[in-house]
Amino acid sequence: MSLAVFDRKPDSAPDRSEGRTPAPRRTDRRTPPPRRTGRPAWMEKPKPLTRAGKAVALALTVALVVIPFWVVLATSFAPDQQVVDNGGWALWPQEWSFKAYDKILSGGVVTHALLVSAGVTVFGTLASLVCTVFLAYALARPGVVGGKPVMLMVLFTFLFPPGMIPSFLVVDGLGLRNSYWALVLPVLISAFNLVVIRGFFQGIPEELYEAARLDGAGELRTLFTIVLPLSKAVIAVVGLFYAVSYWNDFFRAVLYLDDAGMWPLQTVMRQYVTQGQNLTDDASAAGLAVQAPQTMRMAVVVLGTVPILCVYPFVQRYFAKGVLTGAVKS
């Protein structure tokens, strides 16, 4: 069985000592598709009405994405009184107040959860990248011993992903419950990311591998000095995918961490923001008006979003480079 989507070319080279000439389209993969800028000569000039319609549609699309973020941001910075008067929201803070952030960042549940999330994300992303790159590199070498069965083993998991119950039993059986390992190990390698990276490695001309081998470089050295520097774009994108999935995960903590004190930010956010429980377990605080902590709730949402906003622009430019579509047969 071969998954046409993910396999541009089946591993047909039986032995890697047989040099293969790279097909031109393989090296083409990393050059972006030709961009159309400006209107081609044969295309008719669009009618003013069409142009206006398109402009409105685009503006509306952007507004629909941006406005919810803006409302949350504005609410988090607004003074409590304004938010209470409005009934729970603000479009423009009367004055910019950092009180909500001061409160949630001065120790306590949210601060701790933020640190947990940061730790799990950094460690998890590194571990995932290392394991994925190692496996992808070995599987990208033609004729490696066991390459075919291992690749089949990976592809098969696309068809039958492990369910929640079996995963839970495995994590429980390994004694990983109530440990942060449970947030990382069950999702250490994503088969999709593996296939993307492997496809990219296969696109690197075979001559480079051979030159490295002739110069006496071992596999690790070839990987780190030849292959990885050529693959910055794909590593950045896959790194972003891993980081985002670790940062955004709320469910694994619900499943595996019984102690709410260990929870990462998203799980805490679920409890306090979407389920509307009070931010402090203090009985006197629970008596406050419901709207009072709304600025704090929105500040938690902002904190959950900001890291993604920070990393996103640096990686976004690689999306277009065909990194993702390289895995998909066109």
Partner: peptide, 20 residues
Amino acid sequence: VVYLPHFVSWVIVVALFQQV
């Protein structure tokens, strides 16, 4: 702009929709 929401967690999406 339109790629961005894909990277935001469901917890945040739900919170945004509640707020709007």
